[in-house]
Amino acid sequence: MLSIFLYVTVVSLLILSITSVIYKRNLIKLVIALNIAESSVNLFFITLAYRPDSTAPIFTLAPALQELRMVLPSPQALILTNIVIGFATTALMLVLAVITYKNNGTLDIRKLKGVEDHD
């Protein structure tokens, strides 16, 4: 049961973040919620890559070849990509929130509902 704990954490984080996307009204808090979702996906990939008693997949100053066990490299590469993409998304969302605040004077979704009125 203990070994499945990481997966339970992943799923709980994802549910937590989506629930807060549904219930939070502040644009900045929505960004934080999405960051939590992204972290849960990163944790998921890193969990998939784990092997017990292993080193990082780097040969510089590694133990001798015969007793070498390494964790899987490709999930690490992928979450590297995902982190950068998450950073990019976060930055853009924050900028859009700033401009929304400058245009409307509020960050509350309830007060921003007037999108439908033209001009």
Binding site: L96, G114, V115
Partner: peptide, 11 residues
């Protein structure tokens, strides 16, 4: 409302 529409799309 244009920035908010963009925010919605990226959300």
């Amino acid at each position: 409302h244009a920035p908010y529409a963009g925010y919605k799309y990226i959300l």
